[in-house]
Design a protein around this nucleic acid. Structure first.
Length: 479
RNA sequence: GGCCACGUGGCGGAGUGGUUACGUAGCGGACUGCAAAUCCGCGUACCCGAGUUCGAUUCUCGGCGUGGCCUCCA
């Protein structure tokens, strides 16, 4: 079976063939670290995590190199740093903000079941590569200096606009921005700009005396070059990055290296809305990953990483996705069902799984799940395959389901086998067992009134009682 | 204004030129002391109009609606 991926560059699904199967290379645009990541930021992280897992499955774990950058030089970072640490030197404040935010980001996406990329380069650690690129572009005539800025001259690149499928004429006609006086063409973009005295700055390229800082796009060209080479296989990100960010990355990299491509395959995930509306701070529907995980702000309850991840994967990655409480509730039901199915009966109790963890971690994904993903990451069909597996009550089917869930990163081992938490319940585990015993005694005496009273009492505390067919009684924490 | 996506059953969401995906909610039944869980069954959907076709939800054109980009927002 071959992997087929939709390529924004050609607008077609293409058979994916890595430039070098022994070294499959993927770059994804990562976060700008100044605040908690929101749920829209989580989508590309999860989508490309699934692709990373699939590539590792196909080519081998050591054969795939996944690079996701961390943007730590940006006006928003500067503003946040000055706001939070007004008494510190700006550079010190920036360091504190970016380090703290990076930690938050990692904690959040770890909780969503995402593997760490192989490299997470920081922009500020690649200033030399950026300067190098800029020098090459100036030397080759693709860039020029104007008022201490270095600008990329879009008219010098024949293919400019190919990714976004826009001609320069169209873009200029639609432009609504005031054009800076130092630009030769309104669409020329900044590679390097002078720093104000209180801003972070580095020695400038192209003979500029004033210290400066990089433009937005150059960092990704520099970091992908450093860690993946002049050309590589896959470049991903949100669809809003197609223009101008990715278009400009392509311009920089291709013109600096004189190559026909930067990345072979360009992939973009669709946009996310919240309850049918654009997510924005002004609408008050802005929701961060952390708020979903650790507060009751969205849907009046906390959500596990599994539920968030499944909700993200229910929709094909290129489709628009509406983030709703209803969808999270549905994911919760589905995951609960799978967990129940996997841990019910015979050898599949929680305790047994815990004891045999090593063996369980070796279970492979079902072929139907993998082949669904091979078709441009058809998540919906993969999940459909999971549902079909979950209807079969056999050891083989359960192993395949477990293996598939682990492969997709949905039901992680920890979330699968962990004891349900009593922390938030107004009853201890020992007390619960005593009440269940009391109820079963009442049932033996056919004292249904008392039996039902105890069940209602426990239900009010959030514990659902189930009398199984084999005469045992089990319980589950209700939501 | 320019460019580009998307519009499927109560809800979510794949897919296909003709043959009921899947899930979730709901309803009915089995099981149960009653429940829960589970199992079985049920709904007969594809924005509107025109065209192509023997036949369109699927292709083409137009319309309407929603969203994205053109403003360093994934």
């Amino acid at each position: 079976m071959e992997l087929r991926l939709y390529n924004t560059l050609t607008k077609e699904k293409e058979v994916f063939q890595p430039l070098d199967p022994a070294r499959v290379r993927m770059y994804v645009c990562g976060p700008t670290v100044y605040d908690f990541a929101h749920i829209g930021n989580a989508r590309p992280v999860i989508v490309f995590d699934v692709l990373y897992r699939l590539l590792r499955h196909l080519y081998g774990e050591g054969k795939v190199k996944y690079v996701r950058n961390i943007t730590d030089v940006d006006d928003k970072i500067n503003a946040r740093a000055a706001e939070e640490y007004p008494k510190l030197l700006l550079n010190e404040a920036i360091r504190l903000v970016t380090e703290k935010t990076e930690k938050q980001f990692h904690d959040d996406v770890d909780a969503l079941g995402c593997l760490r990329p192989d490299v997470e380069p920081r922009a500020t650690e690649h200033i030399n590569e950026m300067r190098d690129l800029i020098e090459r572009l100036v030397k080759a005539g693709f860039a020029y200096v104007g008022e201490e800025h270095v600008l990329f001259e879009v008219g010098k690149m024949a293919d400019y606009g190919k990714l976004a499928r826009r001609s320069l004429d169209e873009m200029e006609a639609g432009a609504r921005v005031e054009v800076a006086p130092y630009k030769r063409n309104p669409m020329d973009f900044v590679l390097w700009k002078p720093s104000k005295p209180n801003e972070p700055g580095w020695p400038s390229p192209a003979g500029i005396k004033t210290p400066g800082r990089p433009g937005w796009h150059i960092e990704c060209s520099a970091m992908s070059w450093k860690h993946l080479g002049e050309t590589f296989d896959i470049h991903g990100g949100g669809i809003d990055l197609v223009f101008p960010h990715h278009e400009n990355e392509i311009a920089q990299s291709r013109c600096a290296f004189h190559t026909p491509i930067m990345a072979k395959t360009w992939m973009h995930n669709g946009f996310l809305q919240v309850e049918g509306e654009k997510m924005s701070k002004s609408l008050g529907n802005f929701v961060t990953i952390r708020e979903l995980l650790a507060t009751k702000k969205f849907g009046d309850r906390e959500w596990t990483g599994d539920v968030i991840r499944l909700s993200m994967l229910k929709t094909h990655y290129r489709q628009p996705l509406d983030w709703t409480v209803a969808a999270l509730n549905e994911s919760y039901s589905v995951i609960n069902g799978w967990r129940r199915h996997l841990t019910s009966g015979g050898d599949y109790t929680m305790a047994f799984i815990e004891q045999n963890r090593e063996q369980y971690e070796t279970f492979l994904p079902a072929q139907d799940v993998v082949s669904s993903l091979l078709d441009d990451l058809n998540f919906s069909q993969a999940i459909s395959a999971l549902h079909k597996l979950a209807r079969i009550d056999s050891v083989e089917a359960k192993q395949a389901l477990f293996g598939s869930l682990q492969f997709l990163g949905i039901l992680t081992f920890e979330e699968m086998a962990s004891e349900q938490s009593f922390e938030e319940l107004p009853i201890s585990k020992e007390m619960l067992k005593a009440r269940i015993a009391a109820r079963n005694l009442a049932r033996e005496n056919k004292d249904w009134k008392k039996s039902d009273e105890i069940r209602d009492e426990l239900k009010a505390m959030g514990v659902v009682i189930k009398d199984n067919k084999d005469g045992t009684t089990s319980w589950e924490i209700a939501r």
